[in-house]
């Protein structure tokens, strides 16, 4: 298991290198001089940047400088904001996105497992039909529409109540996080519910559940010890990609709810063509996702004995 973990981590590092290289390549294929397009850069900053990134050097030299900086965890300096390091920007805004994402993943995971198990148990009966209808809706409605209606709901709620039950936007307290996290987790929850449902249905009709029944176990014990545990496993395997979906989905939610997260910052940076911030954020997100997927796989290995002992 430890060897497996180590192997995965090594693969992860190589993957991050690939992401960094692809990012570098993409940004260097941008037509024109990145500095020339930006009027806000003063002569002073320009000189600094040129020295730091070796912008007058050949591309391969720039690439080695870039990789060297990355290896030291240095993402560079912002183009548009004076004296601001990309590292600072990430340090400041990422925790917000991460908190929001974590809440959303929790919401999506718990909701998905509970609703999925429920629909499987009530298969083809009213609760199943209602929940699956909502799930199909959740999968089919784009995240920004959900976000918009979430905000609309908040406004109407506050109007109805006559005071601010929950803040409509912004960041800071748990009250700020609640609705955005739910909005962000919704489509993933819908997806996980579907997955959990089919997984649960497969388990319900599986041979070992029949064995458990033949043993005369009470239904609650069959549900907890035999069905739930096995049905949750496939849900855990997709948590990695689900985290990725939620993290990038965060862009929209952060925009709509005015949350000072990294996603919103990234969109702003793109609009201002702040190249170092774009590159830094992309590589950072890429690395984060790669290691999240690895973390989920390793955790899965500890839960499923079949993987653990391989």
């Amino acid at each position: 298991m430890w060897r497996y973990t180590f192997k995965r981590l090594l693969q992860g590092v190589i993957t991050v290198w690939f992401i960094a290289t692809a990012t570098f390549a993409a940004m260097h294929l941008v037509p024109g001089d990145p500095l020339a397009s930006d009027k806000a850069v003063s002569e002073e900053i320009r000189a600094n940047l040129e020295a730091k990134y070796g912008l007058n050097e050949p591309v391969w030299k720039q690439y080695t400088i870039y990789l060297g900086n990355l290896a030291q965890g240095d993402f560079g300096i912002s183009f548009t904001q004076k004296n601001r390091l990309v590292n600072d920007i990430i340090r400041e805004h990422f925790p917000v996105s991460a908190t929001l994402g974590l809440l959303a993943v929790l919401f999506a995971g718990l909701g998905g497992v509970i609703w999925g198990a429920l629909t499987a148990l009530y298969r083809n009966r009213l609760p199943d039909i209602i929940i699956m209808f909502l799930v199909i809706l959740g999968i089919s409605v784009p995240s920004f529409v959900v976000a918009a209606f979430g905000q609309l709901g908040l406004v109407s709620l506050n109007n109805l109540a006559g005071f601010n039950v929950l803040p409509v936007g912004g960041w800071g307290t748990v009250a700020h996080m609640l609705v955005p996290a739910m909005v962000l987790g919704l489509s993933t929850m819908a997806y996980l519910t579907r997955l959990m449902r089919s997984s649960m249905l497969e388990i319900v009709s599986s041979d070992f559940v029949r064995t458990a029944k033949a043993k005369g176990l009470p239904p609650t014990r069959i549900f907890t010890a035999h069905q739930l545990r096995n049905a949750v496993l496939p849900v855990i395997t997709v948590l990695g990609p689900a985290i990725a979906a939620i993290t990038t989905g965060g862009f929209v939610v952060e925009l709509v709810f005015a949350i000072p997260g990294l996603g919103r910052y990234f969109v702003e940076a793109v609009q201002q063509l702040d190249y170092t911030v774009i590159m830094g954020t992309t590589v950072f997100y890429g690395a984060f996702l790669v290691f999240m997927v690895i973390a989920v796989d390793v955790i899965y290995g500890f839960i499923d004995p079949r993987v653990r002992l391989e």
Partner: peptide, 22 residues
């Protein structure tokens, strides 16, 4: 209980008839 204590049962495919995670 009838199942388990009055009648025991074994099945065709032992590979799938046992809980893989227990």
């Amino acid at each position: 209980d009838i199942r388990g204590s009055q009648i025991g049962m074994i099945f065709q495919d032992p590979m799938t008839s046992l809980n893989p995670t227990m």
